[in-house]
């Protein structure tokens, strides 16, 4: 309980500190260059130069220390040995290239990239298109959207239960094995079944992310100008033609945004693999491998090199995002 008081106290101190900082810094600025008196005009201009930076300072400071500074330290660490003391040049990267687990991780990450963003966007698009047409659509949406609120680790527990395997002669309590047996198949230990186990892990992320895709695509579908659809109906297009040839082409931009957002998430996927297989049986991915080298391997050089590989993979999307944001501002 003490802890909660501490947390509450921190909230109060934090909020109060923030307000006090902004209030005092603005007051000092106005006192140094008062917006009145003989120099009022010049003072207002001068204060206007400084004020934005007062507003921005706490945010910039936090971002600089917690997101920008680590990038440079990571680069530095990746060029040093496991203790971070001795310079080893590109050794860590060369080691990566020849490491079997790394090759496996890269292969799996690409598999994830191929399957998950596509799968989630596909199901999201279908769910969006269908739920908009029925009366209980909002309820259906809420149900499909719900996994978004569940933690990756919670979702892993939920799905590990589905994939559960009891062994021969015992009643299967995992849904998947029960269904397989009901159709006359034999129960499997799904999570050790290479290479298909990767796809069973991906199913978890698709399950979580479909709701996200659905919500955004549904809004985009509703934003399509009605005239285009009316015209298509008058021309005798079937509902499928309307959907595939009129609606989908008009929301390509949004589909791309959904796709890239999930892509970034996939590159960082970690909890699911850690919780379900911990990278065994050919399911390793970059983020989990990095975590492994950081905690179990205790090797800051190799772990940083892996983190930088993830950063490298994210960079094209980052540039694309920045460009898009820039275009909109004009």
């Amino acid at each position: 309980m003490d802890q909660l008081f501490m947390a509450g106290g921190t909230v109060v101190i934090g909020v109060f500190g923030c307000v006090a900082y902004f209030f005092l810094s603005n007051m000092i600025l106005d006192a140094v260059w008062p917006p009145r008196g003989p120099d009022a005009g010049r003072n207002i201009l001068r204060a206007a130069m400084i004020r934005p930076w007062l507003f921005l300072f706490p945010a910039i400071a936090l971002l600089a220390v917690y997101l920008v500074y680590p990038v440079f330290v990571s680069i530095w660490l990746s060029l040093h040995d496991n203790t971070g003391q001795r310079f080893v040049g590109a050794d860590n990267y060369l080691w990566l290239l020849n490491d079997r687990k790394f090759q496996e991780s890269i292969r799996n990450n690409f598999l994830w990239l191929l399957v998950v963003p596509g799968g989630a966007t596909f199901f999201g698009l279908i769910a969006a298109a269908l739920t908009d047409r029925i009366r209980w659509g909002n309820f259906a949406k809420a149900m499909i959207f719900m996994p978004m609120a569940i933690s990756f680790i919670g979702a892993s527990v939920i799905w590990k239960f589905i994939y559960d395997y009891r062994g021969e002669g015992r009643t299967e309590i995992g849904l998947l094995n029960a269904v397989v047996e009901a159709f006359g198949g034999t129960a499997q230990t799904w999570l050790t079944l290479e290479p298909w186990n990767n796809f069973f892990l991906m199913a978890v992320l698709i399950w979580i992310q479909t709701g996200f895709a659905m919500v955004i695509l549904s809004a985009a579908l509703r934003g399509i100008p009605e005239e285009t659809i009316e015209a298509a109906i008058l021309d005798g297009a079937s509902p499928f033609q309307i959907f595939l040839k009129i609606k989908v082409p008009q929301i390509w931009g949004t589909i791309a945004v959904v796709w890239t957002t999930i892509t970034i998430l996939v590159l960082k996927v970690f909890d699911i693999v850690l919780a379900m297989t911990n990278g065994q049986w050919g399911t390793q991915v970059l983020a989990n491998m990095m975590f492994d080298w950081m905690f179990r391997g205790n090797d800051s050089g190799r772990a940083s090199a892996i983190a930088l590989v993830i950063m490298l993979l994210v960079t094209p999307i980052m540039i694309w995002n920045i460009r898009n944001a820039h275009k909109e501002m004009r």
Binding site: L67, V71, S74, I264, L267, A287, F291, I306, A307
Partner: peptide
């Protein structure tokens, strides 16, 4: 979109 993995060790 900066991956948090990058920030862990330095921080």
């Amino acid at each position: 979109v900066v991956p948090l993995q990058l920030a862990l060790i330095p921080l």
